[in-house]
């Protein structure tokens, strides 16, 4: 290749301008490597272009320091410059850790408290369900009894002392027992109890079936009482605590005859 012709072609000027294709660039590069005298020509062209373009700048030169700080370098000096920043973020980190830690402890404590509360509530609920199912069983048993066709129902009406009182006796002759529903009776005064009587009418013969000692405590006011008598009527009187041998008729609250 004739070097003079190559230079005269003007390709080196375009090479400096960046107007050649990638392939042409590489060809020029290789040619320069093979012909070192071309490098001087290229450098000279470049120098001229640098001066020409530099003449079209408006301001004074921009100093290198204006970009120096923005260059990412792996120098230890740079680390020392940013050190305060690191400390600060470390400080924030510790504060965050403490806040996080104490929040964690607090929430654990609160969690335990809640767990205890839940356990208590659970227990209460369980006992409620327990008693409810017991009550239900009792109620079901009562319904069963009331529906039994062999059971005789005797309503006891309120008497002079307490006209609004009432009661009901369900008499199961097969098992010789009565179920007394005493819900319609008022609370007995202190020191007094209700006493249940089985009566024969002619002549009037009362037989005590016992006192309702648990009247106040019993919530459904249904009492199961043994009764093997050939009762013709049932009555309830208010008697002194412990009961009486014979009924105090002035304190007869309710009375009802067995319909034959």
């Amino acid at each position: 290749m004739n070097i003079k012709d190559y230079i005269a072609s003007g390709i080196l000027e375009l090479y400096v301008a960046g107007s050649l294709s990638e392939k042409e660039n590489e060809e020029v590069y290789n040619t320069i490597q093979e012909n070192p005298e071309l490098l001087a020509e290229v450098e000279s062209i470049e120098k001229a272009i640098v001066q020409l373009t530099a003449a079209t700048k408006k301001d004074a030169s921009y100093s290198f320091s204006s970009i120096k700080n923005q260059l990412k370098v792996n120098e230890p000096k740079v680390i020392s410059i940013t050190k305060p920043k690191t400390n600060w973020s470390q400080y924030i980190g510790w504060v965050a850790a403490i806040i996080l830690g104490s929040t964690l402890i607090l929430s654990v404590l609160q969690n335990n408290k809640l767990k205890e509360q839940i356990a208590t509530e659970k227990q209460q609920l369980e006992s409620k369900i327990d008693s409810a199912s017991t009550n239900l069983a009792a109620a079901e048993k009562l319904i069963e009894i009331f529906r039994d066709k062999d059971i005789i129902t005797i309503p006891l009406a309120g008497q002079k002392v307490s006209p609004t009182s009432y009661a009901k006796v369900y008499w199961d002759k097969k098992t010789n027992s009565i179920y007394l529903d005493a819900k319609g009776l008022p609370e007995p005064p202190k020191g007094k109890v209700y006493q249940v009587w089985s009566l024969k009418l002619s002549p009037l013969t009362p037989t005590s079936l016992g006192t309702l000692d648990t009247f106040t405590a019993d919530t459904n006011k249904i009492f199961t009482i043994e009764n093997a008598n050939q009762s013709e009527a049932f009555g309830i009187t208010l008697e002194p605590a412990g009961g009486s041998a014979s009924p105090t008729l002035e304190q007869l609250y309710t009375l009802g005859a067995v319909s034959s």
Partner: peptide, 24 residues
């Protein structure tokens, strides 16, 4: 190799030229 001093020399060689081209 990220030598800032070397880059400063290159910068001083070409900064005016580059800013001239950009300004144009």
């Amino acid at each position: 190799q990220k030598d800032v001093k070397a880059y400063e020399k290159l910068y001083n060689m070409y900064c005016d030229s580059i800013s001239g081209v950009v300004n144009n």
